[in-house]
């Protein structure tokens, strides 16, 4: 390839970045597109265009760009990160989660430990929440269909019994007063059965019964939130990877003991991670709701924008 084209592509990319920074996403998209025509082998051009297209909510095209970029470069944190956002937007939370986790892995294994980890963590949680929402919706649908079947069974049983009493009364087997008493008793019992059935369903719903509190041992002592990727320090305390790294970059000391502590000395706490995951699986609805109360999404992604 003539180097002139590579140079031209680089120029167009810079123009695109300027447009992007000014919030002119369509112009940025166009510039990146022209750059790609000059040089289709640079994975960064595709991820930059994907980021512009994310802003324009062209989800399918974001996905195409990301896949192309990942094809050109496997270790592609941004590619997977944008891909996950687009997949989430078109309501494919399983794919989105797997992309987000890949981005997170690439981020934490990269040599420079950046604050991207916190941002990607947040996206991972969003994907998990979306996944959980779908599961929960299905579960409610299933449960309520079983409940309504049972309710209609009770209903028809009650009608049959009422009909029988009417029959007996009409043949003179029982008196009119007796018949009316039995009927009202029957209706009362029927109401009670319905109420019992509904209570039983409510009790069997773990979301209804579970105590809404995350145990302290699953909570990061810095953010006070449930951990998603806990790491353990020399003294045995665990913290969320992204937040302890944020602290260590400012002050390379153990938060509790003040002994010197370097990022390289942190170790993943796999058992605790599994405990957190298990807890989230069981309680996702409200655990994620607590996590989700975030104000401005865009500012969270901002530092990942084009370069």
């Amino acid at each position: 390839m003539p180097t002139g084209n590579e140079y031209a592509a680089e120029q167009l990319k810079t123009q695109g970045n300027t447009h992007f920074k000014n919030g002119e996403y369509e112009a940025a998209e166009t510039c990146y597109g022209q750059a790609i025509q000059k040089n289709s082998k640079n994975p960064l051009l595709f991820t930059n265009r994907a980021n512009a297209r994310l802003k324009l909510e062209k989800w399918q095209e974001v996905i195409d760009d990301c896949l192309k970029s990942i094809e050109l470069m496997r270790e592609n944190m941004k590619g997977f990160f944008y891909l996950a956002q687009a997949q989430l937007a078109i309501n494919h939370p399983n794919e989105a989660l797997s992309s987000a986790l890949t981005a997170y892995d690439l981020c934490t294994h990269s040599s420079q430990q950046t604050s991207n980890a916190a941002t990607i963590s947040a996206l991972v949680l969003k994907c998990k929440k979306a996944k959980w929402d779908i599961r929960e919706r299905d579960r409610l649908r299933r449960r309520s269909s079983l409940l309504s079947t049972l309710e209609s069974n009770l209903e028809s049983q009650c009608k049959r019994d009422l009909f029988e009493i009417t029959e007996q009364a009409s043949t003179g087997a029982i008196g009119a007063i007796e018949a009316s008493d039995s009927k009202s008793e029957l209706l009362k019992a029927h109401e009670q059965n319905l109420a019992d059935l509904r209570t039983a369903f409510a009790i069997s719903d773990p979301g209804n019964m579970a105590k809404r509190e995350v145990p302290d041992y699953l909570i990061d002592g810095i953010t006070f939130e449930i951990m998603h990727d806990p790491v353990v320090t020399k003294n045995g305390r665990s913290y969320e990877r992204a937040t302890i790294i944020e602290h260590l970059k400012r002050s390379p000391t153990d938060p509790l003991t003040r002994e010197p502590l370097r990022i390289e000395e942190l170790r993943p706490n796999i058992a605790l991670k599994e405990a957190c995951t298990e807890f989230m699986e069981a309680n996702s609805g409200w655990v994620y709701d607590c996590i989700d109360g975030e104000e401005d999404r865009d500012s969270r992604w901002a530092h990942l924008s084009s370069s």
Partner: peptide, 9 residues
């Protein structure tokens, strides 16, 4: 980016 959530808790 942390403060709001942490202070809320």
């Amino acid at each position: 980016m942390f403060a709001t959530k942490r202070l809320g808790k």
